[in-house]
Computed example of a mutant assay.
Amino acid sequence: MQRDLTWKTLASEYLLKDTWATIRIDTCQKPDGVIIAPYYVYEFPNWVTAVPFTKDGRIILERQYRHALGETMYEIPGGCVDPSDKNFEEAIARELLEETGYKFDSFEYLGKTSANPSTNTNLMHMFIAYGGEEVQGQELDHGEDLEVLIVTMEEFIELFEQGAFMQSMHVTCIYNALRKIGKLQLI
């Protein structure tokens, strides 16, 4: 029988509440009675991302500068789930349309992952998007500036194998998508 490892939250106080950063400080008690304080928790909205395929089977990528690392990098499209989104599929469809201008025929859910379950409250929900067709220009959020790239499967796999994707949750989504479509085999 497995023992219950759940901590009890004794107190919680917000250090910062802002659009992109909400940080709280918890006082917790472990099952053995030990008090852990302060314990910092970062609250974020849930995120969505997708490996998006055009109608002719190419993959849509993005190049975007990421200020925290000071680097421009390859990514797959995605973003925050908005309160107005009815579900994660609607959220990724909206993000894809805004960032790339492409609308998709269907979506396949690949699961969820966490950037850091020890401090972050949110999850990244991962998809494959099929049948993309450009229907409009980009509608980027304030602060977004990204290039859309359309690559072949061979180019995509080569970029992946070269380690061109740095965002760990994007790497997880790409890995799961390549496995799902039979382009990556487990050893």
Rank of each mutant, 00 (worst) to 15 (best):
L123H: 10
K55I: 14
L123F: 15
E158Q: 15
E89A: 13
F53L: 13
M153H: 00
E99M: 06
E108G: 07
N122G: 07
A50I: 03
F107K: 00
M73V: 12
A129P: 04
G163L: 10
R63C: 09
N120K: 14
K112C: 00
E62Q: 13
G57Q: 01
L97C: 00
L140H: 07
E98R: 08
M153P: 04
I128S: 05
L61R: 03
Y74D: 02
R58A: 05
V51I: 06
P117W: 00
S114E: 15
F53M: 11
K86N: 11
A50R: 00
A93M: 03
G111E: 06
G143A: 04
I92C: 05
A91Y: 03
H142E: 15
P117I: 10
E144K: 00
D82R: 14
H67N: 14
K86H: 04
G111D: 07
G132K: 06
H170M: 06
F160W: 10
D56K: 11
F156E: 10
R94G: 01
I59D: 10
G101A: 06
D85Y: 02
N116E: 06
V51R: 00
R63V: 05
L69D: 15
H170C: 08
R58E: 12
S106P: 02
V135C: 03
G78F: 00
H142R: 08
S114I: 04
L110Y: 04
F160V: 04
